[in-house]
């Protein structure tokens, strides 16, 4: 029996999750909280990244972030559901369902149509959420005490348990996304950006492939949303506002789309940047974001994550003939 070579990304994800779980006891509470928010954002961005692999830019990941968070908050308030794991599973399922429903409509559109329609839908939902009292209006909703796997933790124990839940939910979702991208469907998604008509002639339904990717993106966005909701214990309509989705887009640009690990890198970078900008330019947060985004698009269009990959490739290729840079540029897409 030969052992199959293990997938590097899955190994790295497992190692990161195990490392974070062991390290959790020594990490200060505020860093754990920031990490939880970063992980939530990373999951939603991962959804945007999956769509971007198909060449589709979504300004609507905030919608699923909202759907996940509000499913949790509403089930807590009106259904009395207070088990964290159930809330997470339920929210992911509902967000995936919402994506499946919208997908019938949205999978017909490409390019700017896709980008603007996703933006329009999430702005519409924001507009409704602000007004509807069932959703708590513009104040949003609070989530009270929750149990984790049946245990009712209090204070610091609850925070620790919540951190572990976040780490492992994110790790599992990232693995699912990785397996999707590695599968046949994942390769089809990438081919969509190159040439749709060719794909159709090969007997693949471009539309249903995009639909599948959109459902995955929705589930990932919902997972991010429910983790953010359970971490902060509060949800508000801002989850569906365009600036939230803009953050996710930013994370993807910052980190590039090379691997499912990229958005995690990008989300943490964004969190660091946010802390830095809040201290130095408190009123110009969007401006700092925009400037960095512009510089990346102009000078490193593949994202900062690409620098690591280029370094890694160089390290692997050391001693061998180095491929001329010009050839790389031609074959690889930005």
């Amino acid at each position: 029996m030969t052992l199959r070579k293990p997938d590097t990304t899955i190994v790295v994800l497992l190692l990161l999750a195990i490392g974070a779980s062991i390290g959790a006891w020594w990490i200060p509470g505020w860093i754990r909280f920031i990490s939880q928010m970063a992980i939530s954002a990373a999951l939603a961005s991962l959804g945007a990244m999956v769509l971007l692999r198909a060449g589709l830019l979504s300004f609507g990941q905030g919608l699923f972030y909202f759907a996940g968070a509000y499913t949790a908050a509403l089930s807590y308030k009106y259904l009395g559901l207070n088990e964290a794991v159930l809330l997470i599973l339920f929210s992911i399922a509902i967000s995936g369902g919402v994506a499946a429903a919208i997908g019938f409509f949205i999978s017909n559109y490409r390019g700017i149509f896709f980008a603007m329609l996703t933006l329009a839908i999430s702005m519409l939902v924001y507009g409704i959420a602000v007004k509807v009292s069932l959703f708590g209006g513009s104040d949003g909703l609070n989530i009270g005490l929750i149990s984790i796997l049946g245990f009712r933790y209090r204070g610091p124990d609850l925070q620790l348990a919540m951190f572990l839940i976040c780490i492992w939910t994110a790790g599992l979702m990232a693995m699912v996304a990785h397996l999707f991208l590695r599968s046949r469907l994942g390769k089809v998604i990438e081919a969509i950006e190159d040439n749709e008509v060719r794909l159709e002639y090969l007997g693949t339904s471009v539309r249903s492939s995009i639909h599948a990717a959109y459902v995955l993106a929705g589930a990932l966005g919902g997972a991010g949303g429910v983790l953010a909701a359970l971490s902060a214990r509060h949800v508000d309509p801002g989850f569906a506002y365009w600036t939230t989705a803009g953050d996710f887009v930013f994370i993807v640009i910052l980190s590039g789309q090379a691997s499912v690990l990229s958005p995690f890198f990008g989300a943490f970078a964004l969190e660091v940047l946010r802390t830095f900008a809040a201290a130095n330019f408190p009123d110009a947060w969007q401006m700092v974001l925009g400037t960095i985004m512009l510089l990346i698009v102009l000078f490193v269009p593949k994202g900062l994550g690409h620098i690591f990959i280029a370094l890694g490739a160089r390290w692997k290729a050391r001693g061998r003939t180095v491929v001329p840079a010009a050839m790389n540029e031609e074959t690889a897409r930005p």
């Binding site: 971007l52 060449g55 589709l56 830019l57 390019g111 700017i112 980008a115 950006e193 803009g246 887009v249 640009i253 974001l289 925009g290 400037t291 985004m293 512009l294 698009v297 102009l298 269009p301 897409r333 930005p334």
Partner: peptide, 11 residues
């Protein structure tokens, strides 16, 4: 590509 230009105008 179109997407990159969209990013730029968004920025």
């Amino acid at each position: 590509p179109e997407v990159l230009v969209l990013f730029a105008t968004y920025a």
